[in-house]
Design a protein around this nucleic acid. Sequence first.
DNA 1: GAAAATACAGCAACCGTTTGCGCATTATTT
DNA 2: AAATAATGCGCAAACGGTTGCTGTATTTTC
Lengths: 341, 341
Amino acid sequence: MAEEHKLPTIKEIAQRLNISVSTVSRALHDHPSIGLRTKMRVQQLADELGYEPNKIAIFFKQRKTYAIGVVLPSLIEEFFSKAISGIEDVARKNKYHVFIGQSHDDVEMEKEIITAMKDQHVDGLIVSLSKQTKNYDHFMALEKYNIPVVFFDRVPSLSNVHKVAFDMVNGTKQMLEFLIKKGHRRIGILNGPEEMISSKERTETYKQVMIKNRIKIDMSLVESTDLSLESTATAVEKMLSLKPRPTAVVAINDYVALDGIRHAKKLNLELNKDITFVSYANIPITSFLQDPPFASVEQYPYKQGSMAAEILIELMNNSSTSESFHNILINGDLVIHATGE
Amino acid sequence: MAEEHKLPTIKEIAQRLNISVSTVSRALHDHPSIGLRTKMRVQQLADELGYEPNKIAIFFKQRKTYAIGVVLPSLIEEFFSKAISGIEDVARKNKYHVFIGQSHDDVEMEKEIITAMKDQHVDGLIVSLSKQTKNYDHFMALEKYNIPVVFFDRVPSLSNVHKVAFDMVNGTKQMLEFLIKKGHRRIGILNGPEEMISSKERTETYKQVMIKNRIKIDMSLVESTDLSLESTATAVEKMLSLKPRPTAVVAINDYVALDGIRHAKKLNLELNKDITFVSYANIPITSFLQDPPFASVEQYPYKQGSMAAEILIELMNNSSTSESFHNILINGDLVIHATGE
DNA sequence: GAAAATACAGCAACCGTTTGCGCATTATTT
DNA sequence: AAATAATGCGCAAACGGTTGCTGTATTTTC
């Protein structure tokens, strides 16, 4: 049973009613040049037959797919799954659908996904770079296909692209000023890989704020991790064995901060007294944690996603290549987690 | 610049070479009935022009999109984002792409997504039900369009569907036997909403195991939560205020267990002594937790996702409606988290 | 009552590719 | 040398729908 799977087409309606397909098409679109009588007959038969336009055919004709692709490192990070929600919501409102691809922080995978999405003729792309990505040719190639790209969060260090990102400079300033106000003078940074511009910005801002507050800059207080477990462990260890030890540590994200906290406990350091950890917010389980980071900068992933999507939609509509590039900075907010000090 | 966006087509190649499009098409496919000379000329020009077949046109013609849709409650739950990875990996291997839709546990949203995916002509669908879903008509309607559906994790209570799910009966047995062996006699259940078959199975298994171990069944030890924060809080409170209090509690997932643990601490109960919490694994941050659930049953989301995808691919290939339905049960494994007792 | 305007519907091309069938050429067989 | 078989390629339809143009009744206008 159910083996005939012949969906009704406009052609069929035309035959049954003994009129032309163009008339049917126009009737269904309520075109003014079709008589009321005909329109009604068509509408009725269409309903009876359960006719539904074949969108693939339409997309093909219109050279549009109403699909946007999203490429990001990993859905497991809450930051990204929240961002996806923002993208999805905006997309749905505008009748777009969302393809998702995870690069798992692998450039080759990223390229593959981009190619696949190009082949699928997505109308636009939203991308958060893999942490390995240094070269942007595979994105630039998309221009040829007229596929606009909006980057978010992990954006390339180029000026001629559209991007939405957390305002790292501002967020880092807030965080450092907060710590300094609390009396900290020796502040460590558990930074991300050099390839990420956010890492560079963090370091720069660090220097800036230190200078402004007349604190001597000590670059041995800046450690990097490529975010792998081992690399993070090494960085944490180095950081905590510095002499004198920093009294506060800014970690690139909550996971790294938690690693630091765990290690500090092992060393029998008293948290928020001997040493204070702060970070940039990625995870929301802090309420279950005995010792959360003292504070985090909320980065509003949902907002980043939805803004990126809005920009993309604008770009897809006005294919009139507006010469300017969007460069949105999202302001973070400092959130205090720890219950007391 | 770049305003001509005219991608080369087979037609263009044909014109330039003064041959027919059919010849070009066949040449590009290495069809035996095309002469070597012609093939080479075509190939070369195609390379020069950077020709790429228009997949949309091909999909349209072949009435296939090479897209599979995935509908699930929320990407934020790690269980699901891991499952997605499993689905994606299998899909990619088979040249399929993945559309994702989040129902956010809302039936209406679920229906909308299904409709959208049907309109997009996905070739198949993988679904984990919203916790509200009681009626499966919107899935059954897909038969008409010849779109196969494979359910996973949150599956419907129907026998004539394909599904992959965690073996709740077995997993729960393992867990309960484990607790009983440890001496627990008064075991509470923080169960999920009644609509989820897993909840029913949990209750049933509970009774069964109790009977087998000659422990009197006390249904006041079974509390339900709809998984909202408030509902969970209420259930936890009730559970911990029972007299006598249970010495062990099985929670539907880690989040609920953590809520229980937090509440127990507030009541100054000593964990794993006065009361022990166990659950089904959804989250991996246990290593950062001071007091993780004592044990969890790992549900292998990646495996569930990849198996569901494999079944779907099989179904999409053999549209020969095999009369039997897949009904895979994934065996869980008990994982002990707590460091000591 | 004839000319002009309007209303209604059909023709055919088009989007890019695939494929069954037929038709020339050339090559092979006897 | 004639009949047969390969070989190489083109024609045209098909997938489902949209749209500019054309054509014919029917009305309206003066």
